[in-house]
Design a protein around this nucleic acid. Structure first.
Length: 504
RNA sequence: CGGGGCGUAGCUCAGCCUGGUAGAGCGCUUGCUUUGGGAGCAAGAAGUCGUCAGUUCGAAUCUGGCCGCCCCGACCA
C-alpha cells in the first residue's frame, strides 16, 4: 500500500513531532535510559564522523593542532571568571565521590553506596575554557610561545531542562577551539577567521546558508567580549545558532593567569579566543533539508552517498546481479568527490525491494541505484535522486552514469543549498514599524527573520524577548544590511538592520 | 522549581471507571505465495502490568507512599 509520505505527521502539521519521527525513521539516534542523553546510532554517527573529518581538515589548514584535556574540572576553576561561572552554574553535573561501597541488603541484593568523598568536587566540563586556560598559563612564558592554536574534540555536559535529540542533549559531542595571542588585533582576527571557516563549512559542506554576524551583549557567551555567530533558518522559520566564535579579550587570561613576557620586556596578559560547533549541526541539517519522506543528506557529508540496490526477482540470476552491483560499487569507489573517495554501499539484505528502498529514502541517501537482470542486459542503471520525488527514477547507460556521477552529486549538493537559500530569503522581511513587527511574529503571523533597524537598550531587547519570544539573532556583518534608518521601537537613528527571530 | 500527563510484550498503546488471573497493531521467528516501488496468508516466540505497602476470598484495575519518564514554562550550543 502506498502512503502519502513516509513521515507522519508532515512538517506542515506538526514540525517538532515531524522532527522526532524523522530522527527515528532514519535510525540516527534514540533516547537512552540516561536522562537527556542520546545513543547516536551508526547512521547518525557516520554523519558526525564526516562533519568531524572535514572540519578537522579546515582547522589544520588554518594552523591548529588537536589536544585533549580532562573531562573533570576542579570546581574552583569555575569560580575564577565570575560571568562565566554564573552563565553555566545552573547546568553543571558535579562529581563528589570517587568510590562505591557494596552494601548487602536483607533480600540478598547488593546496593552500591557512594563513599570516598572528594575534598574538592569536580564539575563535568560544560566547556573547557577554565581548564585549558590553566594549561595555557603553564605553556605560555614568552611572546615567542604565541600564538597558541589548540582544538579539542570532546564531549561536554550541560544539564539542560528540556532535552531534544541532537538539538539540545545533556551530553553532546563537539569541538572547542582555544587560542591565545599576543595582541588584541591578532586574537580578533583569529575569531573572525574561524567564523569564516564555520560560514564556509555550513554553506559548502552542509548546504545550509547562514547569516554571519555578531551577538548583542545580551546574547553573548558568558565572559566573552564579542561573540560571532552563524545563524541558520530551518523549515519552521525559526533561527538556529549553528556555530559560535568568541573573542574573550583578556578576561580568561586574567582569570587563569595566562601571562607572558612581551617584546618590550613587560609582563602582559594574553588575548584568547574560543570557538565551537556541536552535534547540534545534525539537528540543524535535518530541519534545514528534510522533507515529508525523511532526511535528505547533502552529498558532501552523507555517510553513504550512493546505495546500490540489487533487484533480484529470480533466484537463478541473483548471484549475477549481486556481482554486477559489487563491481559497480568498486568502480565508483575509485572516484572521488569533495577530495574523498566515493562512499558507496551495496544493500544485499534479503528484504523486499520496496521496503528496502523506502528505508534509504528515509535515511536520505543522495543517490539510490537499482540494478536488475534487465539492466545488466541493457548495460544501464536506474538512478533515483533523493532531492527529487520518491518516484523520480531515470534509466541511464551505466557508462554515462559512471562518467557523470560526481557532477550529479554536486548538482544535488547545489540544489539543496539553493532550495534552503530560497526558503530563507522568502521568509526574511524588512519591516519598519512595531505594529508590523508584532504582526510578523504573532501566532497567526508569517514568522521568519525580521530585518529591523534597532537602537534600543539591553532592557528593551530583554522585554521583547520576554513578551514575544523573539530575540536578536545577530547583527549581520555584511554590508547589504547597512543603511540609514530609524529604530522601530525607539525611533533613534540606526546605521544597520539586525536579525530578529524566534530561535531554538 | 511551578503547571499538566503517563508508567502493561522490543516499540506504540488498549484494558482500569464497574476487581475474577493478559490483549491489539507494528516489529521478531518459521513456512508457502509474491517480488522493477512501503506485500499477502498461516503458524509461532515474547509481559513477575514501574515499585513498596494497604483494602479484598481475589488487584493491571481501588487507596496511599516512593521511583522514573514525557509535555508546557524559566535556562540553553
Amino acid at each position: 500500500m502506498s502512503q502519502a509520505s513516509a513521515i507522519s505527521p508532515t512538517r506542515e502539521k506538526d514540525f517538532p513531532e515531524w522532527y522526532q519521527q524523522v530522527v527515528r525513521a532514519a535510525d540516527m539516534a534514540e533516547n537512552s535510559e540516561v536522562r537527556g542523553c542520546m545513543v547516536i546510532k551508526p547512521w547518525g554517527y557516520g554523519l558526525w564522523e564526516n562533519i568531524q573529518k572535514q572540519l578537522d581538515v579546515k582547522f589544520k589548514e588554518t594552523g591548529h593542532v588537536n589536544a585533549y584535556f580532562p573531562l573533570l574540572i576542579p570546581l574552583s576553576y569555575l569560580e575564577k571568571e565570575a560571568q562565566h561561572a554564573e552563565g553555566f552554574a545552573t547546568e553543571c553535573a558535579v562529581v563528589t565521590h570517587h568510590r562505591l561501597e557494596a552494601q548487602k541488603q536483607p533480600d540478598g541484593t547488593t546496593k552500591m553506596i557512594p563513599s570516598g568523598k572528594l575534598e574538592e568536587p569536580y564539575v563535568i566540563r560544560p566547556t573547557s575554557e577554565t581548564i585549558i586556560g590553566a594549561a595555557f598559563a603553564r605553556w605560555v612564558q614568552s611572546y615567542r610561545d604565541l600564538p597558541l592554536l589548540i582544538n579539542q574534540w570532546a564531549n561536554v555536559m550541560r544539564w539542560e531542562m528540556r532535552p531534544r535529540l541532537f538539538l539540545r542533549t545533556a551530553e553532546f559531542l563537539w569541538q572547542e577551539g582555544h587560542t591565545a595571542h599576543e595582541t588584541e588585533e591578532e586574537a580578533v582576527e583569529e575569531t573572525k577567521l574561524m567564523h569564516r571557516v564555520y560560514t564556509d563549512f555550513l554553506c559548502n559542506h552542509l548546504a545550509i546558508p547562514v547569516i554571519p554576524g555578531v551577538k548583542t551583549e545580551n546574547e553573548r557567551f558568558p565572559g566573552a567580549v564579542d561573540t560571532y555567530t552563524v545563524e541558520a533558518m530551518v523549515q519552521d522559520k525559526k533561527a538556529i545558532q549553528a556555530g559560535t566564535s568568541h573573542y574573550l579579550g583578556q578576561n580568561f587570561a586574567k582569570a587563569a593567569n595566562i601571562q607572558f613576557l612581551g617584546r618590550d620586556n613587560t609582563r602582559q596578559f594574553a588575548h584568547t579566543t574560543s570557538w565551537g560547533m556541536s552535534t547540534r549541526l545534525i539537528g540543524t541539517l535535518i530541519m534545514a533539508h528534510g522533507d515529508d519522506d525523511g532526511v535528505i543528506m547533502p552529498p558532501r557529508v552523507a555517510p553513504s552517498q550512493i546505495v546500490i540496490l540489487p533487484i533480484t526477482p529470480k533466484p537463478d540470476t541473483r548471484q549475477e546481479v549481486v556481482d554486477a552491483c559489487e563491481a559497480l560499487a568498486k568502480t565508483l569507489r575509485a572516484q572521488s568527490f569533495g577530495g574523498e573517495p566515493l562512499r558507496v554501499h551495496v544493500d544485499k539484505r534479503d528484504l523486499q525491494g520496496g521496503a528496502k528502498n523506502w528505508e534509504w529514502i528515509k535515511k536520505g541517501v543522495p543517490l539510490r541505484i537499482e540494478m536488475g537482470p534487465r539492466d545488466i542486459t541493457s548495460r544501464s542503471v536506474a538512478v533515483c535522486r533523493r532531492d527529487l520525488g520518491p518516484k523520480a527514477k531515470e534509466f541511464v547507460p551505466k557508462e554515462d552514469f559512471l562518467q557523470n556521477v560526481t557532477e550529479l552529486l554536486q548538482e544535488i549538493q547545489d540544489s539543496l543549498l539553493k532550495r534552503a537559500t530560497e526558503m530563507r530569503d522568502a521568509n526574511m522581511k524588512k519591516l519598519e514599524t512595531l505594529e508590523e513587527f508584532q504582526a510578523f511574529f504573532a501566532e497567526e503571523g508569517p514568522g521568519g527573520f525580521a530585518l529591523m533597524h534597532w537602537a534600543g537598550s539591553n532592557e528593551e531587547e530583554d522585554k521583547i524577548a520576554k513578551d514575544m519570544k523573539v530575540t536578536i539573532r545577530c547583527v549581520p556583518l555584511s554590508d547589504e544590511f547597512a543603511e540609514e534608518g530609524k529604530c522601530f521601537l525607539t525611533g533613534k537613528p540606526s546605521q544597520k538592520r539586525v536579525v530578529f527571530a524566534k530561535s531554538y
